[in-house]
């Protein structure tokens, strides 16, 4: 009972904020609504017993992707009003395509059935959530059978990092950088100069 209530709460907020994402006039608000949608989706995952996905959704999508979006939206000078021009003009075509896609989805999922031999061919079943949490189950797979792939994926990310630094980092002359070691190592003799100032004369 309580589960159902919580489910409808999360679902309703997720759908409502999803609608707000595309209808909000201010792009910053749209991104904030996107974050709200992510949080509610994470709640839905929790209800479904997928706590790992829920946490990853919050950490990756809210923590990284949405913040990145926010930066992009704030840094780029886009005239959003002009982007909205012609919205009504394109509405019939867009709506038609949407309807066609919807009809296709209904047709596909309406006739959906698993082949009788399909469940048999599943190699490794998901372990029972009451015995093992799915974080643990994923970890076991990732660090045993898929250990090699995990390490190679790490190397791929390392290359991405090296590449980004190599292609974009420039050391420009004339940029003042903070050098903490140099600041700390300053002595009184280097930085303070005592002069006699004659009264009324100035330096």
């Amino acid at each position: 009972m309580i589960q159902a209530l919580v489910f409808y709460l999360f679902a309703a907020v997720a759908v409502a904020s999803g609608v707000m994402v595309i209808s909000a006039r201010n792009p910053v608000h749209a991104v904030l609504f996107l974050i709200l949608t992510f949080f509610n989706a994470a709640g839905l995952f929790l209800l479904a017993g997928a706590e790992f996905l829920a946490m990853v959704l919050v950490v990756v999508y809210v923590g990284a992707v949405a913040v990145l979006f926010l930066f992009v939206v704030m840094l780029l000078d886009i005239n959003y009003l002009r982007l909205r021009e012609g919205f009504l003009q394109y509405l019939p075509t867009g709506g038609l395509i949407g309807l066609i896609l919807l009809a296709e989805l209904v047709l596909v999922f309406g006739g959906w059935s698993f082949a009788p031999e399909a469940p048999l061919s599943v190699g490794s079943r998901t372990p029972d959530p009451s015995v093992m949490t799915n974080t643990e189950a994923l970890g076991r797979l990732l660090y045993t059978d898929y250990f090699y792939l995990f390490q190679v994926a790490g190397l791929v990310l390392l290359v991405a990092m090296i590449g980004t630094i190599l292609l974009t980092l420039r050391t420009r002359a004339g940029v003042r950088k903070q050098n903490i070691a140099a600041q700390v190592a300053r002595t009184k003799a280097q930085s303070v100069e005592i002069r006699k100032v004659p009264s009324g004369g100035g330096i």
Partner: peptide
């Protein structure tokens, strides 16, 4: 198949960067 793809990407990503090395 996954090992194939990861090896290929590791190689290709490094090559993309090298191609643009003279930035």
């Amino acid at each position: 198949l996954i090992a194939l793809y990861l090896g290929l990407e590791l190689q290709s990503l490094a090559l993309y960067v090298l191609a643009a090395y003279q930035r």
